[in-house]
Nucleic acid binder design. Structure first.
Lengths: 185, 185
DNA sequence: ACTAAATGTCTCAAATTTGTGACATTTTAA
DNA sequence: TTAAAATGTCACAAATTTGAGACATTTAGT
């Protein structure tokens, strides 16, 4: 079966489930411009689709974030690239973040996905701490708040993009500006 | 029937529907610590519950926002109070904002709710424009971005509050700091 | 143009969600 | 304490969603 259709369905499902986790599959199918029958040919059932979406998010967000972390030794550059990577991932990143924050989601180190998420989170924490020490970031703000702001700003860019009234590169500029100035001392 | 139960169900529904619009009513009932049977005694059907939630959001968010707007003639004070009011409304405000942004939601001036939302939005725009002219806010940023950032930061506070690791007043400080510095020139 | 792969259409049974009746239990207020 | 109000429990039909079979139509590659 066509990989293109498959990935279109996955992208559609991530978009839809991101803001309506229990949405009927018809909605996902419509959004992907396929019939529900085609959707079911690609994915055995709802659970499989959800699982594949989660995998896709894990893999691609993780990859983007780790690339960003490895892009430099400069914490400020790393932080900026993590934000831009999140924006590029779009709804995928919003969902990814939500998923690991959800209550009921038991974070275990045995779960490889959680371990990877923790690695990213810890890297983020180290970057923030380093920048706080060097006086680039407000020391009074908690890492928790900064991480939520980070995810919140990425989410805002997803919403602005949906309306399509502002260009992608403008959005990225605004986002980075608002973020870094928003956490400055 | 007890008003207390009724409003608990409404609050629960707003919370649940905010992040999962198609969630089964069982989930709402559980969240409100009542049986589904009780939920149905208070609300004829799903549509009625959703409608009541929307009304509740409209009324209470609108009230809070208009109070904030009228709290001062100083644009900066107005802006701050609008943010704090949004934070106090919590999930209610997130949902309220989403609702009026949704594609498919036809914004007509005939619909009183939309007219009121437009009034709030226009006031927000005027405040931003005034602050841009007086050099308090970055003139390059679009009102659309600033409005999304505003909603995004409010949403971040909802997520942080859920974890309960940071105090409410700290959250408000962080939020206002991040917001106003994030849009500074 | 032809063939195979992919998707669409229509249909239907199974599973889930929804809404309600009947009656038991708990809560509230006099 | 007692009667009424509110909620819980169980059971059940209606509505919706889900998943899959059978066959028609479209699309892609040769």
């Amino acid at each position: 079966m066509l990989t293109e259709t498959r990935s279109r369905i996955i992208a559609s499902a991530i978009e839809v489930f991101n803001e309506d986790y229990s949405a009927p599959l018809q909605k996902v199918a419509d959004n992907a411009h396929v019939t529900r029958r085609t959707l079911h040919r690609h994915f055995k059932d709802r659970n499989e689709l959800v699982a594949v979406c989660e995998r896709e998010m894990e893999v691609s967000c993780k990859k983007a974030m780790i690339t960003a972390i490895n892009s430099s030794n400069e914490p400020l550059v790393q932080l900026k690239n993590m934000l831009l990577a999140g924006i590029d991932c779009g709804a995928k990143y919003s969902f990814f973040h939500k998923l690991h924050q959800r209550e009921g989601h038991t974070h275990t180190k045995k779960n490889k996905d959680c371990a990877d998420y923790d690695f990213i989170y810890n890297s983020f924490t180290n970057i923030i701490t380093a920048l706080q020490k060097s006086g680039v970031i407000n020391e009074k703000m908690t890492v928790q708040w900064i991480q939520n702001l980070h995810a919140g700003i990425i989410n805002s860019t997803v919403n602005v993009s949906d309306t399509g009234k502002t260009s992608k590169s403008n959005i990225k500029n605004f986002a980075w500006n608002s973020f870094i100035k928003g956490i400055a001392p």
